[in-house]
Amino acid sequence: MSKIEIKNVSKNFGSTKALKNVSLTFEPDKIYGLLGRNGAGKTTLINIITNKMFADAGEVLIDGEPAEENDRAQAKISCMTEKNVHPWVMKVKDGFRWACEFNSSFDTRYAYSLAHKFNLDTDLTIKSLSSGYHSVFKLILTLASGLPVIIFDEPVLGLDAAYRELLYRELIAYYSEHPKTVVIATHLIDEAAKVLEQVVVLKNGEVLLAKPVESVLRSAYSVSGDGSRVDTYTRGKNIIREETIGKFKVATVYQEHDDSDKARIEELGLEITPAGLQELFISLIDS
């Protein structure tokens, strides 16, 4: 059970503001989706949480302790980064051995069972792994870490659909037995959506949204039909996306709605469909 608190964190790279006064809390035993476009600040935020970078302002606390240069706080986190951190000549099995050396909670047996499920040859060197298998290797190290906080930065990079499915299945199975704080930063939102409980959307270094997935999805819906009628219905509402094809129009609305809204939509002869997380994400980012 570990909580991560991010308090007013800012980070600049030269004149680029990567993070602007970001405040967030990752509660214990929940799965978070950290979403945002390229350059939104997801990796920078993860790097600050994991002490790989320093914030220019603000602080990160792990269970109330500062995360910066704090071995005790950092010993609670396992992070899968997008880039390789292992020496290229290291063998997969040695990667497991060293993970066990540095982290006594590392579950070697589970790591080998995952390697078997993903058909990962543990005698290969990291240099000889394909990008997909390289991701599998890093995923296994993180999943088997046994630590209370696990962070994945683009976990499914290079993985085919079957392995992506297997990953999320394994994550759910492991999480149900060993609840922990999980943060997943990804672009492939629809696939991750089924495991996410909370969603945090970053845009240009700022938190655009931080809510439970259920509440976000409940608030978002698409209305489609005749363009003028769609306009009549959506007038005064929080439209985050509009698409028009001839007289046909689809508008995505992000606003709490009730039975009276549904009745009005029926009355106007329009169709209502729930918005998917991916669609909502794109709409929010573009709006």
Partner: peptide
């Protein structure tokens, strides 16, 4: 750089 990248990813501080 090789050692730094790996060791920091194991949650070990710069001082250590």
């Amino acid at each position: 750089p090789l050692s730094f990248k790996y060791i920091l990813s194991q949650g070990i501080s710069r001082k250590r």
